[in-house]
């Protein structure tokens, strides 16, 4: 039997897919295929006949993989979600990181572990990137809102930019709110008043 396990990575995003493949290559010598199209997923996986399938927990295509648990032909290898029975909490950690693995029947947990470890580390990074992106977007939107509020105050009260910001900050402090929230309230109120 070949020592090299074959892995299928189901990931529509090319960049993410190649990052996952890179980290798996660092973790060991594996035969890796990427499937980026969800159509006909079960058929494609069946044709590749892998030992392990890695997929984003959030991917709706995951349900297709559950079908493989019922592989019926005598030569079919039933595939099931990887669940570690050693109490290491590996599956739990994986799901928290956003990845789930499906492995063929009879696979030894210790052979799957390095793959899981690599995938978990990579998916954690994706999660961090997603959080960072969301944070950056939010900060940008707040900045825009504050700028609009400042503009309104400057026009309405004939004050300069620094004074407008000082006014927003003082109001925020007096009311125990964030500057961005006060700015948003002002912009909304101005919109309502026309």
């Amino acid at each position: 039997m070949s020592a090299s396990l074959s892995i299928v990575v189901v990931e529509p995003d090319r960049v993410r897919a190649s990052l996952i493949v890179d980290s798996l290559r660092d973790a060991g010598s594996y035969d890796i295929h990427v499937i980026s199209e969800p159509t006909g997923l079960a058929r494609k996986i069946h044709a590749l006949n892998p030992d392990v399938v890695l997929i984003d927990v959030e991917s709706p295509s995951r349900d297709t993989l559950e079908e493989l648990a019922l592989a019926s032909g005598p030569l079919d290898r039933p595939v099931a979600m990887f669940v570690d029975r050693d109490g290491e909490g590996l599956t739990d950690t994986a799901i928290e990181a956003g990845v789930s693995a499906y492995v063929v029947d009879g696979m030894k947990p210790q052979r799957v572990k390095p793959i899981m470890d690599a995938a978990i580390a990579r998916f954690r990074m994706f999660q961090r990137m997603r959080t960072e992106l969301a944070e950056t977007k939010r900060a940008l939107e707040e900045r825009k809102m504050i700028d609009r509020a400042k503009g309104m105050l400057m026009k309405a009260r004939g004050i300069d930019e620094d004074e407008a910001y000082a006014l927003l900050r003082k109001t925020a402090m007096d009311q125990g709110k964030r500057v961005a929230d006060v700015a948003a309230a002002l912009v909304t109120a101005a919109g309502l008043l026309g």
């Binding site: 927990v57 959030e58 991917s59 709706p60 295509s61 995951r62 349900d63 993989l65 559950e66 979600m81 599956t91 739990d92 799901i95 789930s100």
Partner: peptide
């Protein structure tokens, strides 16, 4: 949840 396997796992693993 995005899929049935996902909601089942959320429940199974105590999420």
């Amino acid at each position: 949840a995005p899929s049935w396997s996902s909601v089942r796992d959320m429940l199974s693993f105590g999420r």
